[in-house]
Simulated scan of single mutants.
Amino acid sequence: MAKLPNGVTQRKDGLYVGRFQYQGIRYNVTDQDMKKCADKLEKMKYEIKNGIYCKESVVTVNSWFRTWIDEYKKPTVKENTIDTYEIIYKKHIKKPLGSRKIKEVRPEMIQRLYNSMKKHDLSKSTIQTTGTILHSMFQQAYKNEMIQKNPVSMATIPKMKNKKESRVMTLEEQKLFMEYAKDSEIADICELFLSTGLRSGELRGLDWETDIDFKNKVIHVTGTLCHSGETGWRKDEPKTRTSKRDIPMLGNVERLLKRVRRQQMEKKLYMGDKWQPVKGFENLVFLEESGLPMYQSSLKTKVDKIQRAIIKDGHVFEWITPHTFRHTFATRCIENGIPPQVLKGILGHSTLSMTMDLYAHVLPDTKAKELQKIANLF
């Protein structure tokens, strides 16, 4: 007969029981298999001694979310992902489910949440992220044997309408916007957007010392500027492995950056003590008037101001966001014959299919033109 592990005994009915005591409280686990029982016991000891064990009969969704975030997610995902999870949980999960005990949550409650989010016209990505959070939370609770089943697995995200095509400025709209932006504080930012296809966080996070290489005429994309109330400013690792990339510095971009550099140095001298950058972010290419990093919301506000001026003057101009510049850049590249594989590298897409999705809405406009090449053969 195999020797029983420390702390494990076997009852007359064959069931194995693991027991131990910690700070005056007794704990036990059971299993039909001796090794599994011993593994459960060691796992429970670890969780209790490290403060991550929750007695399933009392733990709420709110308290488990906190444990799940702090102990299981923070060590494994980027801070930006943690920020997203915190926001989604607070806005969409906390009120309907937070006060419930995790053992009480049933599939229909999850389904009701999904359906309500769809009814309120929330985006497909928001609902999917909500589902990702819930599934991972409850799956970990299941692994910890706090619940018998994962209720999220038995709910279904509602069928959503096809995602609306990304807004892209026509060449005429692009010229109109840049005409109105030329005297604004973000004129250089907008030109750089339209000349590189950078994401907003990538552009706002550009650093003179690490990212701007005038000698080799290259922009090194090394990360994304992020901000949260909990951690403040930080520069995250690139979104994906392929997001870390080098972009050739066009002539207009080189002239723009040298002008921005000169103006920034002059402003810094002029401002004196009023120039108050954030430590570690003193060398960002684009800073606010006082030397602070630029918030995403601040950039959007400045873009919105230009659009309002355009519309006020009677022009028809569909609303854009800072991300529109990236799609517009990609569209200009496609229209001018840049191959998909090359564009994939410039944009930092992780897969070619992401790049081809951009081609999908541009190619219909050029089908007749391209087919004419065949017609010329006859």
Rank of each mutant, 00 (worst) to 15 (best):
H92N: 07
K40Q: 13
M117T: 04
R106F: 02
L358G: 11
L122C: 09
Q128N: 15
T132A: 14
E185Y: 09
W275A: 09
V58E: 08
P5N: 13
L363K: 02
E282G: 11
A375N: 08
E104D: 15
A375F: 13
A360D: 01
L203P: 03
K161E: 12
M154D: 06
L256N: 09
Y72H: 14
L198P: 09
K182D: 08
Q21D: 10
E104N: 14
P364G: 04
Y114Q: 05
Q21L: 05
P75N: 15
L250F: 12
G314K: 03
I87S: 08
F325P: 02
E209R: 09
M271S: 14
S166A: 15
E145H: 11
N144L: 08
I310V: 09
Q148K: 13
G51C: 01
K164N: 09
G201N: 02
D304T: 08
L363W: 04
D121F: 03
E165L: 12
R167C: 07
G14K: 04
A330K: 11
R262I: 05
M1R: 15
V342Q: 12
H349T: 01
V61Y: 05
V105D: 06
T129D: 05
H220C: 08
S298C: 01
K373T: 11
L299C: 10
I133W: 06
N6C: 05
M1A: 14
V316H: 14
E191G: 14
E266D: 12
W319S: 14
G345A: 01
H349F: 01
S116G: 07
E370A: 15
Y16S: 10
R199P: 04
L287A: 14
S200T: 15
N62P: 10
G232K: 01
D39E: 08
R100W: 03
I69P: 12
I147M: 03
H349I: 01
G24V: 01
I69Q: 12
M294R: 04
A155G: 10
T210V: 04
M160R: 12
L257R: 11
D31Y: 04
K101T: 08
L113R: 00
H349Y: 03
S184Q: 04
T301K: 07
Q263M: 15
G232E: 06
T210Q: 14
S63T: 10
G14P: 13
